[in-house]
C-alpha cells in the first residue's frame, strides 16, 4: 500500500490517508481481504504520529471499508470496493440533482443538460 503525505496540503494528514485508502480500494489496488500495515508500522514508514494513523484507520473502519481483528491487524473488508462505488454514486446523484435543479431554474431541461455533459467530456477525449 502506497500512501503519499503532503505536509503543505491543507488537508489534515489523517484525511489524506483515508482518501488514498478509499481510492485504492475503489481502483482495486487494495483487494478484498488484503492486510493493511499496522498503525504503528504505517506511522513509522510515513514518519508521523501513531495517533494520526489510528484515527485514519478508525474512520475507515467506521465507514465500513476496513475491519480490525484484535491481535491480527486490519484488513480490507468484504464488499469494500462496492462501498466506495456506492458512496461515489451517492455523491454523483447528489451533484446531478443539484445540477438539474439549477438547470430548471435557468430554463434548461434534461436534453440541454445532457448536451452540456457531452461537451464537458470532450476536451478529455
Amino acid at each position: 500500500m502506497t500512501i503519499i503525505i503532503q505536509n503543505t496540503s491543507p488537508l489534515p494528514i489523517y484525511e489524506q490517508i483515508t482518501r488514498q485508502v478509499r481510492a485504492q480500494i475503489l481502483s482495486g489496488e487494495l483487494k478484498e481481504g488484503e492486510m493493511l500495515p499496522s498503525v504503528r508500522a504505517l506511522a513509522r514508514d510515513l514518519r508521523i504520529s501513531v495517533i494520526t494513523t489510528r484515527r485514519a484507520y478508525d474512520e475507515l473502519e467506521r465507514e465500513g471499508y476496513i475491519q480490525t481483528v484484535a491481535g491480527k491487524g486490519s484488513f480490507v473488508g468484504a464488499r469494500s470496493q462496492d462501498l466506495v462505488r456506492e458512496e461515489n454514486l451517492r455523491q454523483i446523484e447528489k451533484l446531478l440533482s443539484e445540477a438539474l435543479k439549477l438547470g430548471k431554474a435557468t430554463g434548461l431541461g434534461v436534453k440541454e443538460l445532457s448536451e452540456m455533459l457531452a461537451l464537458l467530456d470532450e476536451p478529455e477525449n
Binding site: S38, R47, S49, V50
Partner: peptide, 30 residues
C-alpha cells in the same frame, strides 16, 4: 529517529523526550 520508531512498534513502550530540535519532534510525537 528510526530507532525510536522501531522502539515504539510495541504498544507497551513509551517515550518522553525533550528537545530543541523541533523538526525531530514534529514527526514522531503523539
Amino acid at each position: 529517529l528510526d530507532l525510536f520508531y522501531n522502539f515504539i512498534q510495541s504498544p507497551d513502550r513509551s517515550i518522553l523526550l525533550s528537545s530543541h530540535i523541533l523538526s525531530d519532534l514534529e514527526k514522531i510525537c503523539d
